[in-house]
Simulated scan of single mutants.
Amino acid sequence: MGSRCVKFGVIALILTGHWKFNMAPHSKELSEDLKKRIVALHKDGLGYKKIAKTLKLSCSTMVKTIQRFNRTGSTQNRPRHGRPKKLSARAQRHIQRLSLGNRRTGAASIAAEVEGVGGQPVSALTIRRTLHQIGLHGCRPRRKPLLKMMHKKARKQFAEDKQTKNMDYWNHVLWSDETKINLFGSVGVKRVWREYKDKCVLPTVKHGGGSVMVWGCVSAASTGELQFIEGTMNANMYCDILKQSMFPSLRRLGRRAVFQHDNDPKHTSKTTTALIKKLRVKVMDWPSMSPDLNPIEHLWGILKRKVEECKVSNIHQLRDVVMEEDSSGNL
């Protein structure tokens, strides 16, 4: 009974981490210069103990070094092959084909399929290591607009039509777009040199804390007046923005001015089309699903970063900061 209690006590100490094994530490491998010096001193007639005392090393190290030299004629260690690979070259090629055939297949699913074909159990960790060796690493997919073939052809046609335009043409283009500016938190991806402290945490609140929608326009000459959008914008509200903000900015660009907006339904509605025709505004043909072609996106990024630096706490402050940044001319 007593011996059984002792065994349970020892196991408990090991599991709780209170039992420490006195294992011999691994000695540091000798450099090649030091090994050659040991061999040279031994050839000069010095014994193991005297060499160990001179170089402040153990006698067993002297013996092993000199015996290796006498046996192999060299002080270098034999190549260490390690454990042989579990997967054959054929299995590795099979894993590569599976991952490239469907890049969303997880390591566990690939491991199960490889085991089903070869009959050899393979862990998900082995699959990941194999994929890392061929340059494939798991990461989050980039989020991009869904482009169909018709969208790709339209974008290509847009590029071909505009590649011959000179700078004088682009200087007369008025770019426009709407964007949402959040009160709390950032829309973009933020990275920190992580440490478990409050300053490395990006706080969030329920429902995002509120936001404002704004419409803006920009040309090579200057930025236009920002317009806040109350509620959901419809075609009538958009027409009011065009008359109040867009048309005055467009007239400043002269007769060759070209207005750009995307293919949002309220932009292409009958009401909007009739107003643009009445104002005699020349509109640029714009391919669908092409937000990345609009240079105003860079301006929105600058505005959002400046707003975030001000650390506003309510919607009224957010509106004031947006108007202040717009009127300051820093955008």
Rank of each mutant, 00 (worst) to 15 (best):
T271H: 11
Q120C: 09
N22F: 10
L183G: 02
V258Y: 01
Q244T: 09
K86D: 07
T16K: 12
T105V: 14
K156D: 06
E32F: 13
Q67P: 03
S186M: 11
A154N: 10
S249C: 07
H207G: 06
E225V: 06
D161Y: 06
Q76I: 13
L30Y: 04
I276C: 07
F69A: 04
K197G: 11
G208V: 03
T268E: 04
C310F: 10
N294F: 06
M237L: 09
T273L: 11
D262Y: 00
K304G: 05
S211F: 10
K153F: 07
V283R: 13
D198V: 13
S327K: 08
G138Y: 08
M213I: 03
S27L: 12
C59Y: 13
Q92C: 14
S249Q: 06
G329P: 01
L87P: 06
G106N: 12
K190E: 13
V10Y: 08
N234K: 08
T16D: 13
K36V: 09
V39T: 02
H298I: 08
A107H: 06
R155E: 04
W175F: 01
F8N: 08
K243F: 04
L275A: 10
T273V: 09
P25K: 10
Q92V: 11
M23V: 13
A124K: 14
L174F: 03
W300T: 01
S288V: 12
K28P: 05
N236M: 08
Q227T: 07
G116T: 07
D198C: 08
M289I: 13
H42F: 15
V321A: 06
H316P: 03
R68E: 15
K243W: 05
S245H: 07
T54Y: 13
K306P: 01
A111V: 03
K243A: 06
Q244G: 03
L30H: 05
D198M: 09
V321N: 04
V321I: 08
M284Y: 02
A12L: 12
V205P: 01
G45I: 11
C310H: 12
K306S: 11
A124L: 04
S60N: 14
V114F: 04
L136S: 02
L15Y: 13
R80N: 10
W286G: 02
E297K: 04
V218Y: 03
I66W: 14
G216M: 00
H42V: 15
G17D: 00
S58A: 15
K7A: 10
F259K: 02
K180R: 11
A257M: 03
G231Q: 11
T179S: 14
G210E: 01
I241W: 02
D320A: 09
T204S: 12
G101M: 08
A235K: 07
L303W: 00
T65A: 15
R90N: 10
K148C: 09
D292F: 07
K20W: 11
L13P: 00
H151I: 05
E178Q: 02
K148V: 11
